[in-house]
Design a protein around this nucleic acid. Structure first.
Lengths: 123, 123
DNA sequence: TTATCACCTGAACAATTATTCAATTAAACA
DNA sequence: TGTTTAATTGAATAATTGTTCAGGTGATAA
């Protein structure tokens, strides 16, 4: 009667197919990888940051031009740029009193293009 | 003295290059598109949902198997699956009392692969 | 029918996060 | 030097969001 009960201590899930679960579990990526993956997507997942990155697709831009283009305060832009810097999604360099930002690599360009292609199909 | 003052009513940003701003602004996508793009990325940007989707890369799975693979309660999984359904990132079908989920299309597969490629390069 | 199972949903809580405001840094000019 | 400008930062607030818990569907089996 109580045969599958021992599989999990927490809940009763008799319907689990252990074979399928094992097969898929083996192919899963390490947690560290998935965390970083999610972190990267989440960083792209803010409307302001998405706009910043898409603006940078067209070339290097300084902070105040970015603020004007995206339509948000310089302070807010700065906070977002720090997030993008931390995830290595953008590069930056000083030029006089200005600071110019650009996309870190073509991978981000590709991701944006892929994402856009996906959403533009449904609209 | 007060020449550029009129450009914006809100703040004093004299450093803005109107030419550059105009050029980039023209190329920006409509807000609706960017919102949907950000929404899509944000949906991928949760560790649990990223794990769900990556598990589904290997084939169709029912809810309880998904819960076991990802290591989270069925309730939590269900909430996440609703989010994924709303964004049309997954398909589902009933089979008996079970409900089986699968990736909506190859676009998501590509996005995941691209994202993974990106993060695995830095690790 | 009644009972059980697989899954879904609403409410509530905890945690995260985007923005604003004020103060600060770094560079250029008088 | 002192002043102005472009950008950054920290603190505080408001809003969003993931998870748990309890209850509720819809489908199968007794």
């Amino acid at each position: 009667m109580i045969t599958v009960e021992l599989v999990r201590g927490t809940q009763h899930r008799h319907a689990i197919d252990p074979e399928t679960v094992q097969r898929v579990k083996k192919r899963m990526k390490p947690e560290k990888t998935m965390t970083l993956l999610a972190e990267t997507f989440r960083t792209l997942g803010d409307p302001t940051r998405a706009a910043i990155l898409y603006a940078l697709v067209h070339g290097e831009l300084c902070v105040c031009d970015l603020a004007e283009i995206v339509g948000i305060s310089e302070s807010a832009i700065s906070h977002h740029l720090r997030v993008l810097r931390n995830l290595r999604l953008v590069n930056y360099r000083r030029q006089g009193r200005k600071v110019c930002y650009s996309l870190a690599d073509d991978h981000i360009r590709t991701l944006l293009a892929q994402g856009l292609q996906h959403v533009e199909e449904r609209l």
